[in-house]
Amino acid sequence: MGSNIIKPQLLEVINELSLSDLMSRQLQTVYEGWSVKRLATFFIKHGIGGAPVIAADDELVGVVTQTDVVRFGSRTLDEKEVQKLTQFYCGPYGGELSEDDMRHMQERASENCTVHSIMTPEVVALDIVTPLAEVCTALAKRDIHRLFVTENGKLVGVVTARDILQRLLE
């Protein structure tokens, strides 16, 4: 019975709101060349769970989250990744790395590996005038928690599922 009273009110609010009503313009960005360690420190310092990734020319190139950092820290290198690291450190004609060298590289991976290596290159961004119903659909269909807001093709903000829920509860 209570849901029948709430439902029309909720639909009215959803139909009236757009991204500009919900988004945060205080957007924290990270550079793709940062180390994973620097990224983790950045997330803690700013109390955020994810951020858009930009290249040196300020082009939006991806998104990275705390989950990406955790996955990176808990994974083990497969054979292909070991070969890539060996080639990187020893050169195309270089030799083999010892087991101690490999262990040392893995221990220092968070300092040597970059945000680019763990980010998701697909960025979900919607225009600032997008209605809330479309925003909710995009979040649900793509199973994501945040999306970025653009205005005239320029990154201007971020909105999270939490932002939407908080606004609907008001």
Rank of each mutant, 00 (worst) to 15 (best):
P8Q: 09
E32C: 04
A133E: 13
F42S: 03
E111G: 13
E81K: 05
P8F: 02
V64D: 01
G33A: 08
P92F: 01
G49E: 00
G91Y: 04
F42D: 01
V70P: 03
C136T: 06
V123C: 06
V156E: 04
L165E: 03
F43D: 10
T150R: 06
G62K: 04
T76L: 11
R146C: 02
M105F: 08
N4W: 08
F148C: 12
G49S: 09
E16P: 02
V64N: 00
D58Y: 13
Q106A: 07
E59A: 12
S110T: 14
D101N: 09
S20W: 10
A55N: 11
R75T: 07
D143Q: 12
M119W: 04
N112D: 15
A125Y: 12
T137D: 13
V82H: 09
Q9A: 11
Q28F: 11
I54H: 03
V115A: 02
L77R: 10
L155I: 05
A56M: 05
G33Y: 10
V30S: 01
S24L: 04
E59I: 14
K154G: 03
H104P: 01
L39C: 02
C90K: 10
D100Q: 11
V158S: 11
R103T: 13
G73N: 14
D58T: 10
A56E: 15
I164L: 03
L39W: 03
A140M: 08
I48D: 05
V30Y: 00
I144D: 01
Q26A: 15
E111F: 07
G95E: 05
H145T: 11
N112I: 14
D100E: 08
F148E: 10
L147S: 10
R103P: 02
M23G: 02
E59F: 09
V158K: 04
L97V: 08
I144G: 00
I14K: 05
V149A: 06
E134M: 15
A133M: 14
V156H: 07
D101Q: 15
V61E: 04
Y89F: 13
N112S: 15
L17E: 01
K141I: 03
D21W: 04
G157Q: 00
T65H: 00
T120K: 01
Q26K: 15
P8D: 03
E12L: 09
L39P: 06
P131Q: 05
V53F: 01
R162S: 10
V63Q: 11
N4I: 13
L39N: 01
E59D: 15
V69D: 03
L77I: 14
L126P: 01
W34N: 13
M105P: 07
V61F: 08
G94N: 09
Q26C: 02
R167V: 03
V30R: 00
E79D: 15
P92A: 08
K45G: 12
V135M: 14
V61T: 07
F88W: 15
A140I: 07
G49I: 02
L165F: 11
V69F: 05
M102H: 05
A56Y: 12
T130Y: 02
Q87Y: 10
P8N: 10
T86S: 05
R142L: 09
S74I: 11
K154M: 09
T160I: 08
V63F: 14
